[in-house]
Simulated assay, not measured.
Amino acid sequence: MNRLFRDFQGGPTCPQGSVACIGAFDGLHLGHQALLRHAAARARALGVPMTALSFEPLPREFFARPVPPRLLLPRARVLGLWELGADVVGLLRFNARMAATSAESFVHDLLVERLRVREVWVGPGFRFGRQRGGDLVTLQRQGRQHGFEAGEIEPVLLDGERVSSTRIRAALRDGDFATATRLLGRPYAIGGHVVRGAQLGRSLGFPTANLRFGGKVPALSGVFATRVHGVGPEPWPSVSSFGTRPTVQGSNEPLLEAHLFDFEGDLYGRRIEVEFVARLRDELKFDDLPALVAQMHLDARQARDILRNDTATRTRAYA
């Protein structure tokens, strides 16, 4: 049974021992997948649970200003970690107290006392603890003292460069979804429960399924050709806008609005995923609503053409 815990300190979560891996895991890309697969294999070999440790907010979000973009929301990250082999996920609250925790205390209080680790695995260049004072050497030194082993997996390379969340954010920013897909091992998508909006799109002839981004900064914005998963047996073709709606509201909170072509039904409360296929344009502020509606019709036609051609290409590739 999958388990989740949030607190740094507490009673033993894995009294029989565990294998742990640690990382930001933003995106769950090919490099993260390699780390998780390795830790899961080691846990199976030892007959103990595999624990994936991450942080919320991410440390770079806690320290950096402006706040850097996020690829995955917390719920999607936890679900993805479970799907990739974690029995236990520690989504640790990163706050001032944790930022001030020494590397040695992190090891003793969490890895030793709470998780009873037998092995700890990290990715290349891993740092942890106060002022990023701990690294793989620290883990190995502490392991000799407390009776566990620590190791680092080899970097995963694509086109001669290390797979990283930074590369994925750059690809999404540039609308290069092909590269993002290769780095992630799957198309980039954002999931969530459909929320009620102002229903302006419905009055304009473009009803939308709306997803909020949880107060995080998204890695992309604009208008896109998309597919929506979770509505029917096949992904539903759509056109989506992701941004702050400058023409109608000018809110600072990003909203993902997906218009599903030829769809009739109520999606409120349903969990869906919006897969990004191609970038159409930047988000723009129009002089009035008629100008906005005219552009929406153009976006819809372009998105239909792109998705039709993309589907045909995929069909030929797998025929």
Rank of each mutant, 00 (worst) to 15 (best):
L30C: 08
H259C: 09
G265N: 01
R60E: 09
R167W: 10
R132Q: 09
R116G: 10
P66H: 11
T101K: 03
V277D: 05
G80Q: 06
V217H: 12
G151A: 09
F286Q: 05
T101W: 00
A52Y: 02
G192T: 07
P218T: 09
R97I: 04
Q199Y: 11
M1K: 15
V194Y: 08
S241Y: 11
A34Q: 03
I168F: 09
Q295H: 13
W121H: 01
G17E: 06
H259E: 09
V163T: 07
S164P: 12
A189L: 12
R141N: 13
A198C: 12
R186G: 10
L30K: 09
G90W: 01
S102T: 14
S165R: 00
A24P: 05
R70L: 12
R167L: 15
Q140Y: 05
E273M: 13
Q145W: 12
G10E: 04
R212M: 12
S241N: 15
L115T: 00
P218V: 12
D305T: 14
G197K: 14
S18P: 09
F55E: 05
D305A: 14
A180L: 10
A103G: 09
A24I: 15
A20S: 06
Q302V: 04
R279L: 07
I306K: 06
A64V: 10
V223K: 06
E113R: 10
F25R: 00
Q145M: 10
R281E: 06
S165V: 06
R245D: 15
P49W: 01
H108Y: 11
Q131A: 14
G17P: 07
L84F: 08
A34V: 00
G269A: 09
V120M: 04
M296S: 10
R279I: 05
R42G: 07
V217A: 13
P237N: 09
D176R: 08
F263L: 00
A99P: 04
F242H: 03
S165T: 08
P69R: 09
T51D: 02
A180D: 11
L184T: 07
R227P: 06
T244K: 13
F128A: 04
F276L: 05
A99Y: 03
H259D: 04
G143R: 01
A103W: 05
V117A: 00
L280N: 04
F8E: 02
F25W: 01
D174A: 15
R173N: 11
R227M: 12
R93Q: 09
L136P: 01
P155L: 02
F62K: 04
T138L: 01
H29K: 04
F224A: 07
F126N: 00
S221P: 10
V274H: 08
S238I: 05
T166K: 10
Q199H: 14
R118G: 13
A303F: 01
G47S: 07
R173V: 08
G215F: 10
M50P: 01
D174H: 11
L136M: 01
F242C: 02
S241D: 11
W82Y: 13
Y188R: 07
R279P: 08
H29I: 06
F177H: 03
A178K: 11
L46V: 02
L28A: 04
R97D: 11
